[in-house]
Design a binder for these strands. Structure first.
Length: 566
RNA sequence: GUACCUGUAGCUCAGCAGGAUAGAGCAUUCGCCUUCUAAGCGAACGGCCGGGGGUUCGAAUCCCUCCAGGUACGCCA
């Protein structure tokens, strides 16, 4: 239920001559301070029309105000402060979430429309870094959010599985590689070969030419080159999948860069047909002066295509294949220029749907103030971070709850949860400097804090010896104390939170909801006895159950697992 | 040089579709386990909201400008 809407309607009976319900709705605000009630209406704006001072207006409105869900209206200066009827609302909210469970907050807003999400996109033969974590978990969380909003998300892992670097890699493998070593430890070994290539290149610049020729062979379908490439790809993907499993992420498509290899001629032809392709310094470009942008380089002097050519092909392919409502690209903020150009070229081509393409930018991670780079070896491997997190979680369990049965499993859920939650709890645009101790934190505003809170809630239900069916009666659960009320209001606010997360493509909004709810519940937990014999026992149990459901759903949306005990 | 992003407590960040005394977490100090998991709760300490100007009844929030940091700007992706 949307009590803001109800109050806006109730106010409208007095104000309809001056303000629409929508305007009233937008003026209503949640007071920062709980002493100012549950909802407030500032009367400043009415001062002009009524030609009275706002305080008087507020007082006049209050005199004639009545609403079924409002207990009391306070006038404080120019503000009307509404105090809602806690009993009615808590009963309604609890009933709703307990009935709907994981479906609580679902909408059909998206009407099943497709939204491909370009995400993760690691490079074959290179390890996944913390940078890939960001794209992966943000993309995954957005997919969950979109699905809950009624859309059909399509998670696409746009693998970096093509390009001149594979010529270099094949060269390195032919010179220094050993099959057994690669089989034993594919990505580490291949990456080492790649790094070595760049080291040797300093001494032997002609290696560059060898690399180029191997890539040429690969492009021409040379048997040896193709087999090596396919092998590298397969081994890499197998290793990636281990990480994806740990993160609980799966994909609907792994069409990477190589997939579009034979689809780029069409793009070039289309651009030619439309007269957009011009020669400039031997290269083929699309001019974008009208957009205040540098020309987009479609073909190099040597005729080879480029990043943007491939992305154009991918954009066209996705539009045709999915007829998307929106197309999202979860890619770092360092590629803003690229996507601006991409959209501009599509606009030039006359595709109005370029407006539906959204670059979901995220901030970059640096190490010691330096940008991460595989080439310079300045990179933090995702797997190492997950491992370390799980180890620390296990240590924590041994201290706090040594008798826990499935320690390993829980340590993995808590450790990985900490890493994922840490990534998702801040505005995705924020850059951050890598700091393991900060990421693998178990106290305060963290993933484990939310998980722990839910485990405590479940523990109460377990002690009460009840299960979900206990709540399926026609009983009415109502609570009026302040601790419960704060919890109820947070559960009630989930819909608008979800809506905002969708509108801003911002998973952190959900993470904050989880944290605030966990906080509110822990206060409730510390101050309100549930299991003692008391007249509100049933309602309190219902609240505990509702919190467990809500936290689980918040965490699920973020892609974080929720252990029942920890 | 141009464009974009960022600048809020010692640190990490909320708040920014303008509103009532600027909020969390971490760190520091102190308190709370014979009662539902102390990975918890409470208290204290901590702020020219980068500087300056403007719009407004009202600005951390909007506009301008300056300063500082980051990123990107044609043959990598």
């Amino acid at each position: 239920m949307d009590f803001k809407q109800i109050i806006a309607e109730d106010l409208s009976t007095q104000l309809s001559e001056h303000l629409t319900i929508n305007e009233i709705y937008n003026l209503l605000e949640k007071p920062k301070n709980t002493e100012h009630g549950d909802l407030a209406f500032p009367a400043f704006q009415l001062a002009k029309v009524f030609r009275k001072n706002p305080a008087e207006i507020a007082s006049d409105i209050a005199d004639d105000f009545s609403s079924d869900i409002v207990d009391k209206v306070d006038v404080v200066g120019p503000y009307l402060n509404f105090y809602l009827n806690k009993g009615t609302i808590s009963a309604e909210v609890l009933k709703e979430i307990i009935t709907e469970k994981g479906d609580y907050g679902n909408t059909d807003f998206g009407a099943g429309k497709n939204i491909p999400i370009d995400m993760s996109s690691p490079n074959i033969a290179k390890p996944m870094s913390m940078g890939h974590l960001r794209s992966t978990v943000i993309g995954n969380a957005l997919a969950n959010i979109l699905e809950k909003m009624g859309f059909q998300p399509i998670k696409i892992n746009y693998l970096g599985d093509w390009g001149t670097q594979f010529g270099r890699l094949i060269t390195a493998y032919k010179l220094w590689g050993e099959e057994e070593k690669v089989r034993a430890n594919p990505i580490a070994e291949l990456n080492e070969l790649y790094v070595r290539f760049h080291e040797e290149l300093e001494k032997e610049p002609e290696l560059e030419e060898v690399g180029r020729s191997w890539f040429k062979k690969l492009e021409n379908g040379d048997k040896e080159a193709t087999e090596l490439w396919r092998w590298f790809r397969e081994e890499s993907l197998n290793e990636f999948n281990i990480v994806y499993d740990r993160l609980g992420v799966s994909f609907d498509s792994t069409n990477g860069e190589s997939f579009y290899n034979d689809k780029m001629d069409e793009v070039v032809e289309l651009l030619e047909e439309k007269g957009l392709l011009v020669e400039d310094q031997g290269a083929q470009v699309v001019r974008l002066e009208d957009y205040d942008l540098q020309p987009a380089l479609i073909k190099k002097q040597d005729g080879a295509t480029l990043y943007i050519t491939r992305d154009l092909a991918a954009a066209l392919y996705r539009k045709r294949t999915y007829d998307f409502d929106q197309s999202l690209y979860v890619v770092g903020q360092d590629q803003i220029y690229h996507f601006t150009q991409l959209k501009a070229v599509l606009a030039e081509m006359g595709y109005e749907w370029e407006a539906d393409i959204h670059h979901i930018i995220f901030g970059l991670i640096s190490i010691d103030g330096q940008k991460m780079s595989t080439r310079r070896g300045k990179v933090v491997l995702l797997e190492d971070v997950l491992d370390e997190a799980a180890v620390r979680a296990e240590k924590q369990i041994n201290e706090k709850n040594p008798n826990l049965e499935n320690k390993d499993e829980v340590a993995e859920q808590v450790g990985v949860g900490a890493v994922v939650f840490h990534d998702l709890q801040h505005d995705r645009r924020n850059d951050f400097n890598f700091n393991l101790d900060e990421i693998v934190q178990f106290e305060g505003e963290t993933g484990p804090y939310v998980q722990y809170t839910r485990a405590r809630a479940l523990s109460i239900l377990k002690k009460a010896n009840i299960d979900a069916s206990y709540f399926e009666s026609e009983k009415e659960f109502a609570l009026t104390d302040d601790y419960s009320w704060t919890v109820i209001k947070l559960i009630q606010s989930f819909s608008s939170t979800l809506e905002r997360a969708y509108r801003e493509y911002e998973p952190s909004v959900i993470a904050k909801h989880a944290l605030r709810l966990a906080q509110a519940f822990n206060r409730f937990y510390a101050n309100v006895r549930v299991l003692d014999e008391n007249p509100e026992r049933e309602s309190r149990l219902a609240l505990v159950y509702a919190v467990a459901l809500m936290l689980e759903e918040d965490l699920r949306l973020l892609g974080v697992q929720a252990p029942d005990e920890m």
